[in-house]
């Protein structure tokens, strides 16, 4: 039995210690917004925040989560109000959409550490997140736009 903090709430999970956080979120807790893409931290579809930093939940065993705060796409913001989500909507970034939860979580973590990222910052932070639909150009624009929206709020 593990107790983890997910989206601000304590959750009890009965699972083998080696179960990746990804499958705990999806199968045990019903938080299916976090996606399975590769199982080996190669594609970024499973990106969530652990104490605010982007991590690949597909290679993080539940036993290693501890008391750190897990945030998933469902817990990023109410009503799609995070600047990243607003920018994504404004620029119609998603196509098939499967990778976008991971893209958005990676972008949100980037903006926390780099409120005004350069293109190089974006490349460095986002190149672990694959998109087969090729939305990279729109993602880059949307990250800059989200940074501007966040600045306007402050």
């Amino acid at each position: 039995m593990f107790e983890i903090q997910v989206n601000g709430r304590p959750m009890r999970v009965e699972a083998a210690p080696d179960t990746p956080l990804l499958w705990v979120l999806r199968d045990h807790l019903g938080l299916t917004g976090t996606k399975y893409g590769c199982g080996r931290a190669l594609c970024g579809a499973c990106t969530v925040h652990l104490d605010g930093a982007a991590v690949r939940s597909c290679v993080l065993p539940i036993a290693d989560v501890g008391r750190r705060a897990v945030t998933t796409i469902e817990g990023l913001a109410p009503d799609r109000s995070d600047p990243v989500q607003r920018a994504w909507i404004e620029l119609d970034v998603p196509q098939c959409g499967y990778c976008q939860s991971g893209q958005i979580m990676a972008a949100a973590a980037l903006l926390r550490s780099h409120p005004a990222p350069t293109d190089a910052d974006i490349d460095a932070a986002m190149s672990g997140n694959l998109c087969r639909c090729g939305t990279y150009g729109r993602i880059r624009h949307a990250v800059h736009r989200a940074a501007a929206l966040a600045r306007a709020e402050r």
Binding site: T32, G33, K35, I73, E74, R80, I89, V93, P94, S101
Partner: peptide, 12 residues
């Protein structure tokens, strides 16, 4: 389909 694809609610 964009709103459901930015908040994790889109059902694949």
């Amino acid at each position: 389909d964009t709103p459901a694809k930015v908040d994790g609610s889109a059902q694949f």
